[in-house]
Design a protein around this nucleic acid. Structure first.
Lengths: 221, 221, 221, 221
DNA sequence: CATGAATGAGCATTCATTCAT
DNA sequence: AATGAATGAATGCTCATTCAT
């Protein structure tokens, strides 16, 4: 929904806008964020911002969509469908963690969509994000079953939901103060160690998932 | 942190303030919420609001703390430590769902703590909420192990974290537009059916958890 | 349409607002007028202005309605229905002129309603102003006819329209630069003498009207 | 005052600018009108507009002058100085009405000059418009007197002023919401019938003027 | 000559907070 | 203790005008 002009400007300028808007929206949330500050931070004028976007909401939606799209591209780029499902999972969790650490604002923008007052944004953004991921998990599970490495009696929808829920919570635990503190409490680690802790626990987490899903007959044979 | 006067006023007035503030903060989020509207909705004057609370943040903190405390009391009241762990889990999930449906605002207030701009609130609120829950799960798991119904080789912290994460996501999926849409996509149901869907899936979810944790030797014997 | 609060404040403050708003709206027109300047000029805060009025339009409408109502009250107060119609006319024109000179802003507010972009205001204001005046003229003319001093064959509606049109143009000629220059050109006088010129010509104008309307039979008899 | 470039461009482009600017200034008034919209409507760039005109005011002045000049040319073209004065009057009113109906924007531009905030414009525009008309009426009246068809005892300046005032009000009553409503109230007709009503009343209006001015001796003889 | 992206002063309106009554 | 009028900083957005291309 950004105006035509936004697609015409230099890549550099467009990037600065993405970065500044992501940073400030991520830090302050939609309502508190200040469009003037975003313009100043991106080193453009307020007027230009409104040449590129219809209004604050349009800017927010655009930058959030961009953030989500980048996150997805990042994950998609490392998925190897020929890999064993559980190895894929591990790659996804590790790569996701890496991306979130390097792009905290993007994860925060994602987290904010679930907030009060963001219902309109959720209606416009959520489906396009989640459907892709849900479909991936469901298909990968089906394939795992037909490949004989996953138990055929699982509830695919439920398992997909559970796996992605754990992914979401882990990633948000990097960028949200609340979830950081919560994770620190569960794992009994200091704030500064959260990222390392998460990374070190991914193996174990995928192990638990594997233990629940793996086809035992397969294992025995 | 509310002023002393807040504890002196009639229970009815205090309740009205809790209800109105919860409703409006839950609907709009902290930044967008309007203190005048809260005062009007609670049928008190703006001046009184500022007699009871230092500022908007104090009001928010107070009402959120109240909401979280109510949620906890509700869960605690139905926990029966003598029950089988998995049955306790099922009770907790069902009771939590019921409470969230009846007190959507409370769950929304909880969800909002994880938002951008709420870091200060998280620092003040999160620990007191999560520690209690984390401790419960860890102790219950330990007891399950010593009772022989839970495999002794599990990572207690991790399992506690996973179980509560699923609880949190399920509850937030009732009240957050984003998570509702997401859950609808995973389970392939319409928005209107979300609550029923969650309720109907709790059995299966606890079943999966049980399958992963249950002590097989015990089962075999 | 002003808010309740506007009726509650001190008369002095209310007057200051009327005066400042009338002055600035009259000087700049609706679009160019600055609400901050009005507040400052009235010695109140911007916030208060918006406590009293919903928005700029509401303020404009309120102050214009007040201006028109004052103008009318002023004329009504000197109309003596027992007087000869032509003498009434003369009183009205003279009194109107005096009021306009002393309350230029009020006349300017009236003049502005006819401007481009003021259609919405006209729809809300015009009828209530003009109906009263139109009715007065029509009734006074009817009475003049039945009293035998006005020719019975006149087109009452047309004559009422003509008389009021001349009144309107004369009054606006005091306050509108355009109409001042125009009147100066017709009467061949300098700008500084406009008011005196108008006053001195009222006799002649009413004389012309009388000449057109007076019942000649009556005169002859 | 437009820049030289404005006289160099194609007639078509110049016309488009006149039409678009007249339309938008007439609709919104000077302050509210948007130069970007005018440029877009005229199918030229904003930059070009500022190549042709110094600023918004220059554009306004130029287009208003053009509008007034067109109005005058239109009237002048049908005046037949050899005609009886009252027949000339009738022609002028009828032709003026026709022109206003077909060129509403031009009449609105004229009407707007009398508005608050337009004083500078009035100083630059009014005289050149009104002097021509005032002179015409004064001369025509003098000729009428010397021809013996108009009473020699009239106040020529006053009569010229009155006649033109009625012309002005009638014409503005077509294009100004305020004056339309007002006229509708005096003549007791619906808005949709205003134009027809004015046309049908021109005969009567000129009749009244004739009755006041006509030389009775002439008539009797 | 023409273009339209860029600028930033300017403005209507909101809202947390204070304080006189 | 309660009230709600008063305050003014803050903010989203507009638009006349400029200027590099």
């Amino acid at each position: 929904m950004p105006r035509e002009t936004f697609n015409v400007i230099s890549d550099d300028k467009r990037q600065r806008i993405y970065i500044s808007a992501a940073k400030i929206f991520a830090r302050d949330g939609f309502a508190k964020a200040n469009t003037s500050e975003i313009a100043k931070d991106a080193n453009i004028s307020k007027g230009s911002l409104y040449d590129y976007f219809e209004n604050k909401e349009d800017l927010y939606l655009t930058v959030s969509t961009h953030a989500i799209s980048e996150s997805r591209k990042n994950i998609d780029s490392i998925i190897d469908h020929s890999m064993n499902f559980f190895d894929q999972l591990k790659s996804i969790f590790l790569q996701g963690l890496k991306f979130v650490i390097e792009n905290r604002e993007y994860a925060q923008l994602y987290a904010n969509i679930s907030t009060s007052g963001m219902e309109d944004f959720a209606k416009k953004l959520t489906l396009k994000v989640e459907k892709h991921t849900a479909d991936y998990y469901k298909n990968a599970l089906k394939k795992g079953i037909s490949d004989g490495i996953i138990r055929p009696d699982i509830d695919i929808k439920m398992v997909a939901f559970i796996i992605n829920s754990l992914y979401v919570i882990l990633m948000i635990s990097v960028v949200s103060e609340h979830y950081r503190i919560r994770l620190g409490e569960y794992f009994e680690v200091e704030d500064a160690e959260i990222e390392k802790e998460i990374e070190s626990k991914i193996d174990a987490l995928v192990g638990i998932i594997r233990m629940s899903l793996e086809n035992r007959k397969e294992t025995k044979s």
